[in-house]
Amino acid sequence: MVMKSGGFYYGKKLLLFLFSIFLLSAVIFFISRLAPGDPLVSYYGDHAERMSPEERQWAEEKLGLTDSLPVQYVHWLERALQGDFGISYKYKRDVTEVIGERMGNTLILGGIGFCLIFGLALALGIFCAWREESLADRVICKIGTVTSCIPEFWMSLLLILIFAMNLKWLPSSGAYTLGGTRDLEDRIRHLILPLTAVIMGHLWYYAYMIRNKILEEARADYVLFARSKGLKKSSIVLKHCLRNVLPTYLSLMAISLPHILGGTYIIEMVFSYPGIGTLAYESARYKDYNLLMVLSILSGITVILCSIVAEIINERMNPCIRGNHIVEDTEVAER
């Protein structure tokens, strides 16, 4: 297969990305317009209820609510591209403003959680594969299977019950102590429990995958060859096996990024941590459709972006997948 030039390749991916976002936003727009509720309210808040019929008429025409849905979508898209997503019904402010305030908190929780999961899973997976079938491996596998079955919200509840209610070591909610000094130490103390919940919920899934992939590699012939050549176990595992496992792991991590960020939603809610998750939950409870719609589009974009990044990682780092159909063809020919 002739390698296409980099620019063409990334251009194609970018086009795919833009097209996907376009479709996604259209779908979400139509879904949320189907929901009962007055769209006027989501733009003007309570003010909409006090409008006279003439004002209503004028407002509806101004917002284009008298048009058909596709036309409305185009108008919405035009405004959205200029950064105007309307106002939140509950907060009576611009949606972008409300989200902007909370975004940082979620990124901190999800980002630190993601990095820790990434590193710890790698270390744990290699350790377990190294000591395959030893006591440590079996104990870790058992504990891991149990933790991966615990629903995240229940894990959070347990953590609060044990460490905040009974041992009184750590605070149970918020990002800062109310009325306290907003310093770093306070912040970290508030982060520990939610972070633990995030990590515990995901860690074993990835660690177990690494473990199994390395064990699969360890059964390959090249390992036997390297062994007979006299290479050390450490250099075989770290230099040879890991290198074969890494592309799969990286692309898996890319796909799982939105999963981990999304998983923080319910944890944020339990800890009343002021992030996107709590916001989405509130908007769902109070039927703040406009806010919910923007949040949905945002998380949808993250999903699409991450899956395209995963594809790029796969295709650039692992030539086997890029030429996949060629490999299949040769197999057919050999048969």
């Binding site: 479709l23 879904i31 929901a35 009962p36 769902a284 919910l292 949905s296 949808g300 699409i304």
Partner: peptide
């Protein structure tokens, strides 16, 4: 496959709220 990928990136939360409303 592409289309389903896009459809499934619509968060479940929105679907749940909508379905309840309907």
């Amino acid at each position: 496959m592409r289309l389903t990928e896009i459809l499934l990136s619509v968060p479940g939360l929105l679907l749940v709220v909508l379905l309840q409303a309907v």
